[in-house]
Design a protein around this nucleic acid. Structure first.
Length: 212
DNA sequence: GGCCAGGTGTAAA
DNA sequence: TTTACACATGGC
């Protein structure tokens, strides 16, 4: 099974090349991006991020000190902005207990702690651990579920933990974990873009007419 | 105009 | 335990 997963990985890598995720200039930008991108296109997240940057607020202490209402205004382009502003606040307050210290956080913060934050679910939690703090944790998203269940690698009703356990049979190399998830997202976008031949892997809709 | 986007929490069945 | 819904902007 591991061989199969690695074969798919290399196939994707050959097809699309390294994706270089996460696109950010700092670990803190990753953390913020993770919350902002919840059910939201990256394009919209970029606008929100650049609003924060432009105001010099993409720094832990600055953002933590910012009123939620102000934050909400700035991240508006990312959608769900009131909700996400509060979620960022919640997350900031956990990170503040580590004094926003990268080394400290990288070594000590746990999955349980992150999951206890309101607004941080499994995918966000694992994205933060992998992409911000370089832990070998595999990120499972809906694309992963749909694509790999159609490839009959996982079952339709397998839950997050089940699928994650499977992928984590792959040797725990952070770079591979980062790249694999990124490639899955890339593939998901590619196969449903126009001018592509029909395939049975549409991640957008299970009954997609365009790619059945 | 409708569907989708690099999800999550909550409430009802 | 599963399902339905709210949250919201912007691209196509």
């Amino acid at each position: 099974m591991v061989d199969l997963l690695l074969r798919i990985y290399h196939t994707l890598l050959d097809a699309y090349g390294p994706q270089g995720w996460w696109p950010a200039e700092s670990w803190f930008e990753v953390v913020v991006g993770v919350i902002l991108t919840q059910n939201t296109s990256w394009k919209n997240v970029e606008r929100a991020i650049s609003n924060l940057k432009r105001n010099g607020l993409l720094e832990p202490e600055k953002l933590f000190a910012l009123a939620v209402e102000k934050m909400a205004e700035l991240i508006k382009p990312a959608g769900f902005y009131r909700l996400k502003a509060q979620r960022l606040k919640n997350l900031m307050s956990l990170l503040s207990t580590y004094n926003f210290d990268f080394v400290n956080l990288s070594e000590k913060i746990t999955r349980e702690e992150l999951l206890s934050v309101k607004g941080v679910g499994k995918e966000s939690c694992d994205s933060i651990l992998l992409y911000a703090f370089n832990r070998p944790i595999f990120v499972v998203d809906n694309y992963t579920k749909r694509i790999f269940s159609r490839l009959a690698v996982v079952k339709e009703k397998d839950d997050y933990d089940k699928i994650q356990e499977l992928f984590q049979l792959i040797p725990r190399k952070v770079e591979i974990y980062k790249e694999y998830h990124a490639l899955i997202v890339k593939h998901a976008k590619e196969i449903c873009s126009k001018n592509k031949p029909k395939c049975r892997l549409c991640p957008i809709k299970s009954d997609c007419n365009y790619h059945t």
